[in-house]
């Protein structure tokens, strides 16, 4: 199979370039990660992140034929050749397919992603109805792979100011949690022309999410909560 891989090593003195690679591999039952690791076994200078190889840890997000995906759950057979693999867009490249995720993590931290409840703790669990718990479905499953945020033009323009779809989805996860008592402060934290309102509903995030989550919908819910709060 034919591949075109983005290569960059800051120590080499070379500019970033695309490298054509041919690999003898039977695509049946294989994922893109299998191919990238087979290429690395031949040429160990190729660098990429990987861990769980089953789509739950979020390490191996890359841009494949123009779309952000997790290499480990992208079936090789579905991809058009030459398969072009680049690092995630919109973040500084450290080397090859590895980007500096810090701008993404910083936005995640900025929404205070932890449960806030200053009430006295019961000796047992806090109760939550299955219906209230269901509100977290579609939000808590985020794996922080950054496929969505780095597919978002608003994040490309303002990575330091716009929280981005992953961060806002997590903001919603805590707003929606019946056990969390900081809804008002959480809404204050994002009510800002940049932090929240740079989202223009382009919906690249929905298309990009490898876990089938819908950040645009969650952002819409935050916006409507803000409207409700005003009236």
């Amino acid at each position: 199979m034919k591949f075109r891989l983005y290569r960059y090593s800051p120590e080499s003195g070379e500019k970033p370039h695309m490298q054509d690679v041919e690999l003898d591999i039977d695509p049946v039952g294989k994922m893109l990660l299998d191919a990238l690791l087979a290429i690395k076994a031949q040429d160990e200078t190729l660098s990429l992140r990987r861990s769980c190889r089953e789509g739950v840890c979020g390490s191996d997000a890359v841009n494949v034929n123009g779309k952000n995906r997790l290499a480990c759950i992208t079936p090789l057979g579905e991809l058009k050749e030459p398969i072009e693999v680049r690092p995630l867009p919109g973040l500084p490249v450290i080397r090859d397919l590895i980007v500096d995720m810090e701008p993404f993590y910083r936005q995640y931290r900025s929404i205070k992603p932890w449960l806030i409840n200053d009430g006295p703790e019961p000796e047992v669990e806090r109760l939550q109805s299955p219906e209230d718990r269901a509100l977290l479905d579609g939000a808590y499953e985020c794996i922080l792979c950054a496929c969505c945020t780095t597919a978002c033009p608003s994040f490309w323009w303002n990575p330091d100011k716009f929280v981005g779809p992953a961060g806002l989805l997590q903001a919603y996860r805590f707003i929606a949690d019946s056990r969390d008592e900081a809804t008002s402060a959480r809404l204050d934290n994002v009510e800002d022309p940049y932090r929240l309102y740079r989202c223009h509903g382009i919906m690249n995030c929905v298309d990009a999410c490898p876990k089938g989550l819908n950040p645009t919908e969650a952002i819409g819910r935050i916006k409507s909560l803000l409207v409700k709060r005003r009236v």
């Binding site: 932890w114 449960l115 409840n117 703790e121 669990e125 806090r126 939550q128 109805s129 299955p130 209230d132 718990r133 977290l136 808590y140 805590f174 949690d177 056990r179 969390d180």
Partner: peptide, 8 residues
């Protein structure tokens, strides 16, 4: 109490 979203 830390917020783990257990099923209910």
């Amino acid at each position: 109490h830390m917020g783990l979203p257990f099923s209910r």
